[in-house]
Design a protein around this nucleic acid. Structure first.
Length: 324
DNA sequence: TAATGTTTAGACCAGT
DNA sequence: ACTGGTCTAAACATTA
């Protein structure tokens, strides 16, 4: 297992699978969905190893996107010309990685056809995303213009809320946070400018800040304010022509990282039955405290993927089937 | 035509 | 030994 270097993995192969890398890229995007080319770019920007042999690993990556149910394809709208579709994480694959660590997958994520809560078809998944988004938007509106100070019940977390919990240093938010802003300068991105195409994942940073721990330095940096809508110019990632806005943060509560439409789609959103149980996310087991220091130390450790605790979301168990 | 997406196959490795 | 996950390669189809 390559040991993370001081600032970068350099030319060593990162200890992440293609699934992990892809999930990272998608998670890092404000809209939680990226076209294939942007996924390529993300990986190459951050992992020099993947700047070579692009044909090989990109083929593998495409294979993974198609093969793994945890990735869903979201078609472009006609007025959003471009090659290929957007790729997003399946709403129910949140706990796919062991303890949120991208170093290790918990179990293979597989969608069941009988799983009506978590749609199996991409189109359904996309609609599901929008439904979730709409609900979240409603919650946001009800709470005012600022971050929703919603209790867990507001999101129908059904008792599976995880007000605290260990967040593995290799969880995506930690990885990305290090990449984007790491006071200690240990992030490999310290050697690489942050691509403008990848705005700071404010839902992550604000979450950390709202938790009073994570990355207040980022939140306070003014780089992106949590109440400031992401500029759509940063990427027309909205499917179905609805502007998307990340709303994956709530005070002390982590929301599913999914694309969020600012306004409902023209297509009638079917009346929601019971609010679907929450989408567990890679961020769902956010701890109340995780200092950047812990990330640094973990990054420099030789055996980082040793979760001391594993928080399993019962809801996710309802939604996804981990095929062993 | 190149990029994107799907599918199949085989090898390797780790865990049980 | 068996199983599952991952990686790699390849062929083929689709699409901008």
């Amino acid at each position: 297992m390559p040991r993370p270097g001081r600032n970068t993995y350099s030319d060593q192969k990162p200890p992440y699978s293609y699934i992990s890398l892809t999930a990272m890229a998608i998670q890092s995007s404000p809209e939680k969905m990226l076209p294939l080319s942007e996924i390529y770019k993300f990986i190459m920007d951050r992992f020099p190893y993947y700047r070579e042999n692009t044909q090989r690993w990109q083929n593998s990556l495409r294979h993974n996107l198609s093969f793994n149910d945890c990735f869903i394809k979201i078609p472009r709208r006609p007025d959003q010309p471009g090659k290929g579709s957007f790729w997003a994480l399946h709403p129910s694959c949140g706990d796919m990685f062991e303890n949120g660590s991208f170093l290790r997958r918990r179990k293979r994520f597989k969608v069941l056809k009988s799983d009506h809560l978590a749609p199996s078809k991409p189109a359904d998944a996309a609609q599901y995303l929008q439904q979730q988004a709409k609900l979240r938007l409603s919650a946001l509106a009800a709470s005012g213009t600022h971050l929703p100070q919603m209790p867990a019940a507001a999101y129908n977390l059904g008792g599976v809320a995880q007000p605290s919990g260990f967040k593995h240093p290799f969880a995506i938010e930690n990885i990305i946070a290090r990449e984007y802003k790491m006071p200690g300068g240990l992030a490999f991105s310290a050697m690489q400018p942050v691509p403008a195409a990848y705005p700071l994942p404010n839902q992550l940073t604000t979450m950390g800040s709202s938790l009073g721990t994570g990355w207040p330095h980022v939140y306070g940096s003014g780089m992106i304010d949590s109440t400031t809508p992401i500029s759509m110019a940063s990427g027309d990632y909205s499917a179905y022509g609805v502007p998307l806005k990340p709303l994956c943060h709530a005070a002390g509560q982590t929301l599913p990282a999914i694309p969020v439409p600012i306004k409902p789609t023209p297509a009638a959103v079917p009346a929601l039955p019971a609010l679907p149980a929450p989408i567990p996310t890679l961020l769902s087991n956010s701890p109340p405290s995780l200092s950047p220091t812990s990330s640094q130390t973990a990054t420099s450790q030789s055996s980082p993927a040793t979760p001391s605790e594993t928080l399993t979301s019962p809801a996710s168990a309802l939604h996804s089937v981990a095929v062993h």
